[in-house]
Design a protein around this nucleic acid. Structure first.
Length: 266
DNA sequence: ATGTCCGCTAAAAGCGGA
């Protein structure tokens, strides 16, 4: 079974590339992030023609996540357990955002997640990011009582190690590499999850994101922030994993590349 | 070589967000 995750940066803008990639990579399950469209505006017709069922969680302009599956789509759950919203400075209420959706596909439990960016260390959005990650940890912990294969896939907006950014000296004091963010990843892993590390198809590090600006992709100045964490029942099935950097080439691309994981049949 | 791109708006140029 082939499972993948991809931050598409607008499913509408990316639809031609997405349909093309589905046709060539042929994932059985695809977790999407940054839909930037409402649930009822999701292009499930075109995607359905390729044999995929769709569960989407989106509200419009920002965020939005989905699971596509051609091996069944059950037990869909939108949002985390006790998921926090974003409490902006001076705001009276939190705003909930569509950043997580869970589903069971062919016996595998998957979560597609889009972790808050954080903006700057110390920003209200950074506090939100850490609270949100704790809710993700609690949600994973609650579901891990089941022995079935389980994985969290998505855009974590965190580089697990200094080697996962193109130049750590360019990230001094920045989000994505801070100790608190990395501790949140460790806490998530301590629920019983191990990171699946993809192969790089070119260069040494399997970056998954390159900013559109400043020729970051041609210069391979990227970050590895799209991650996959699985329990033992999941990771023991892993036959291969890689980042499809070809999908980042050319016109009309996302700023992220898909991460693919191939499982042997359970 | 893509020297950003996306979606939204008391809208068609400027803005927030990434």
């Amino acid at each position: 079974m082939r499972i993948a995750t991809w931050n598409v940066n607008s499913v509408s803008a990316r639809l031609p590339r997405l349909l093309d990639w589905l046709g060539t990579a042929e994932p059985d399950v695809l977790c999407l992030q940054e839909l930037k469209c409402a649930e009822d505006a999701f292009p499930s017709g075109e995607i359905g023609e390729l044999g995929y069922e769709v569960a989407a969680h989106g509200t419009g302009r920002w965020n939005g996540v989905a699971v596509l599956s051609r091996v069944g789509l059950e037990e869909v759950r939108r949002g985390l357990l006790d998921e926090p919203g974003y409490l902006a400075d001076g705001a009276m209420f939190e705003t909930k955002e569509p950043r997580a959706i869970g589903a069971t596909c062919g016996g595998i439990r998957v979560w597609s997640v889009y972790v808050p960016n954080g903006r700057e260390v110390g920003h209200a959005h950074y506090a939100y990011k850490l609270r949100w990650l704790d809710a993700l940890r609690a949600t994973a912990a609650a579901e891990l009582s089941s022995p079935r294969p389980f994985a969290v896939l998505g855009d974590f907006n965190i580089a697990p190690t200094d080697a996962d950014v193109w130049d750590i000296t360019a990230f001094d004091g920045c989000t994505h590499v801070s100790e608190q963010e990395r501790k949140a990843l460790t806490a998530l892993a301590e629920t019983g999850l191990t990171e699946v590390r993809p192969r790089a198809l070119k260069y040494d590090v399997a970056f998954t994101y390159w900013d559109y600006r400043q020729l970051r992709f041609p210069n391979n100045q990227g970050m590895r922030i799209d991650l996959i964490f699985g329990n033992e029942a999941f990771t023991s099935l892993v036959a291969d994993s890689y980042v499809d950097r070809e999908a980042r080439k050319g016109k009309g691309t996302s700023d992220h590349a898909p991460v693919v994981v191939d499982l042997t049949a359970p």
